[in-house]
Simulated scan of single mutants.
Amino acid sequence: MNHPNWSMGAKITIDSASMMNKGLEVIEAHWLFSLPYEDISVILHRESIIHSMVEFHDTSIMAQLGTPDMKVPIQYALTYPDRLPIVSGKRLNLAEVGRLHFTEMDFDRFRCLKFAYEAGRAGGTMPAVMNAANEAAVAAFLDDRITFLQIEDLIDRALENHSIIENPDLETIQEVDKETRRYVKSLL
């Protein structure tokens, strides 16, 4: 529960450790920007300074850098397209940071990120199943009923157990969510 760069709630801290938060962001990027999953990549950046990058057709990359603090993105989301000053915000000092490090993602180590790509590509109700299974599994972990690595196992079993429903309506998604949570609880 002690993230090296961020102060977050319990669930988000666990999702960060399992990389499920990045998996959910991959699915969001797919829908928000109409990008195929093959064009969305995740790299490990331990300093949490670069929050996003976009590569253009000419291969140049633009990145959004800032201190590990959600005040700026939340404020920007609320005030878009304006940018307001944040009086209490710490300024990013790149000389103080010194270096930025990047590592390819290990999908064997971070299975939740792999699940997100697979569920997103499968479509239909699979992303809802993945999310519901993750929420139920993380809750069980926080209640000391399972180990950290069992979170992945429960999500995997829920995804394997589910038969995809294509083009679900909201009512179907809500029912699949409830069924998945019941299924995960039955495995505990």
Results as ranks from 00 to 15, higher is better:
Leu142Val: 06
Thr172Pro: 00
Asn167Val: 08
Val129Met: 07
Tyr117Gly: 01
Glu160Met: 01
Leu154Gly: 02
Arg157Ile: 07
Gly120Asp: 02
Glu171Asn: 13
Ile155Gly: 08
Asn134Gly: 01
Ile151Ser: 12
Asp153Lys: 14
Tyr117Met: 02
Asn167Ile: 10
Ile164Gly: 00
Leu154Trp: 12
Ile164Ser: 00
Tyr117Thr: 04
Tyr117His: 09
Met126Ser: 04
Ala116Leu: 02
Ile165Cys: 04
Glu166Ala: 12
Ile146Val: 15
Gln174Val: 10
Leu113His: 06
Ala139Tyr: 06
Gly123Cys: 09
Met130Arg: 00
Ala132Leu: 08
Glu152Val: 11
Asn131Ile: 13
Leu142Cys: 14
Val138Arg: 07
Pro168Cys: 07
Leu159Ser: 08
Phe148Val: 13
His162Trp: 15
Ser163Thr: 15
Ala158Gln: 04
His162Lys: 09
Thr172Tyr: 06
Gly120His: 08
Ser163Gly: 00
Ala116Trp: 00
Ala140Glu: 09
Asp144Pro: 00
Asn134Phe: 10
Ile155Arg: 13
Glu118Ala: 07
Arg157Pro: 01
Asn131Ala: 05
Leu159Pro: 04
Val129Glu: 02
Glu135Leu: 13
Asn131Gly: 06
Ala137Ser: 11
Asn161Cys: 03
Asp169Trp: 02
Ala158His: 07
Arg121His: 00
Arg145Ser: 10
Ala136Pro: 04
Ile146Trp: 15
Asn134Lys: 03
Asn161Trp: 09
Ala122Trp: 01
Thr147Gln: 09
Ile165Arg: 01
Asp153Arg: 10
Phe148Lys: 04
Gly123Thr: 04
Ile173Gly: 05
Lys114Gln: 06
Val176Glu: 06
Ile164Asp: 03
Ala116Pro: 02
Ala122Met: 09
Ala137Pro: 01
Ile173His: 00
Leu149Met: 08
Leu142Pro: 07
Leu149His: 07
Ile173Pro: 03
Ala119Phe: 03
Asp177Ile: 06
Asn167Phe: 11
Gln174Arg: 13
Ile155Leu: 14
Asp144Asn: 13
Pro127Lys: 14
His162Gly: 13
Glu171Leu: 12
Ala128Ser: 12
Ala139Arg: 13
Asp143Ile: 02
Pro168Glu: 08
Leu113Met: 03
Ile164Leu: 03
Glu118Val: 08
Ala136Gly: 07
Leu142Ile: 05
Arg121Gln: 10
Glu118Gly: 00
Glu152Asp: 13
Asp169Gln: 00
Arg145Tyr: 14
Asn167Met: 12
Glu171Pro: 03
Ala137Asn: 06
